[in-house]
Nucleic acid binder design. Structure first.
Lengths: 238, 238
DNA sequence: AGCGCACCTAGCCATATGGACAGGTAACAG
DNA sequence: CTGTTACCTGTCCATATGGCTAGGTGCGCT
């Protein structure tokens, strides 16, 4: 039943055939691209998917650029990706947007390590159609989810749907963009610097530091810098 | 709680033979127990190890209790484990200590998600002989590491060795135990409560809250509560 | 009994912080 | 031109925080 595991780096089974934008023949397999920086996860996902009937992993990628190249080269039906590929989470969101625009045939399913209200909502806006948590998925769910996503349906892990619904009803406009400068200040706060030290460090006044922190606090719904650091961490900003 | 997960093929390779404390015959395989709450990781690690010559995965476990049962039942040569099995990291460390005491034949290799100076040093003290980061390992390293650990050698991922050395030379006595009360206060700090609110919440005075925070700050080497939250998160305390 | 440890309390003081106000600039899109 | 956005600055004030010293209790261990 197993023994399906191929070589680690994985020979690419097929040269890309004609990839029409419409639905493919029911007999052809769902072609999947797996993107994760972690080998163990890549191999694990590959092993799980390849024991799912009608699904085949055509390539793996470990960086944002590699994902783009691989999508372009293989035109997969589904991209299973952990957004945390570089040190810039925002980059992952942009990537999703770009792929849904340029390769509408390729559906995106996020396989995340952590649940971030921030990221989920943003991802949905950018055309992502699936969001699962690594720690939550059962082995068989993953295969099913991929096929469901390919059919254009939305798949969300338990609790995630509720989260999104709750967020949309929330008073604060979540998903509000965190600016570069704010992030810069935030990182220094996390390192325990005072407003004065931060100000001196990046050549702005203490007033401005406080200004950025006020905005950050509003965007993340925090009222103390300790909470700010906590929520920012949970949101994958640090 | 959960049961021990058996092999997918369903065959339990061997009823446990006599397991002598000394080295086993060079022809017998290194018998591995994989413990991780995440299916993808378990399958990934299993796939990687099973393609390594001379290594066989005999069981999987997803909870602390299941690990203990499985070690007792299978007497594996190596336990590959992510300490983050429950919501109590400390429990994982205790588990390691117990296993090295009661089953000295079984070597322990930690396969962690995050690098925590705190945990690494503590783990070493309790007889753990390997520490790798999921995000760092190459596929072939994992197999090698398991065999190396079985031979009684210590394996540490890149950077981890330096970390340990640096820690030991550090002025602050790292690995100093964080008490229950401190942890309780810490969690409330992370949620953005003021000292006064925390005091009222757990029926102690503000002075005591500050006392606990002072001790925590010393133990984690932080000087501001934002930094405290940051480091505590990195140390897996939150 | 003596010891260490977790836990709790008090007071003092300089400084940091949060929250509010009311502005300014530059770049860029419609 | 007008509106939006990121970015920057200032002032005001109440409160929170960090750092310190100097105690107290109860518990388990030797």
């Amino acid at each position: 039943m197993n023994e399906v595991v191929r070589t680690a780096t994985g020979a690419i089974p097929l040269a890309r055939p004609d990839v029409p934008l419409g639905r493919r023949s029911p007999h052809s397999k769902t072609r999947v691209l797996v993107a994760d920086r972690n080998v163990i996860i890549r191999i694990g996902v590959r092993a799980i998917l390849e024991r799912t009937p009608g699904v085949a992993v055509v390539a793996e990628a470990t960086t944002y650029d590699a994902v783009l190249d691989a999508v372009d080269e293989h035109g997969p039906d589904v991209l299973v990706i952990d957004l945390d590929l570089g040190d810039d989470t925002t980059r992952g969101l942009q990537l999703c947007e770009e792929i849904t625009k340029r390769y509408p045939h390729t559906k995106i399913m996020i396989l995340a390590s952590t649940l971030s209200e921030f990221v989920v909502v943003d991802a949905m806006r950018r055309g992502v159609t699936g969001y699962l948590l690594k720690d939550d998925v059962k082995a068989d769910e993953l295969g099913k989810a991929v096929r469901t996503v390919q059919d254009g349906e939305v798949v969300m892990g338990k609790g995630i749907g509720n989260l999104v619904a709750h967020s949309l009803g929330s008073h604060r406009d979540i998903g509000e963009h965190v600016t570069d400068r704010e992030l810069e200040v935030l990182k220094l706060v996390a390192r325990g610097l005072s407003n004065k030290q931060i100000a001196a460090g990046i050549y702005i006044t203490e007033s401005t530091v406080k200004f950025h922190l006020q905005n950050l606090s509003r965007k993340l719904g925090a009222h103390r810098r300790a909470e700010l650091v906590h929520k920012a961490t949970a949101a994958g900003l640090l």
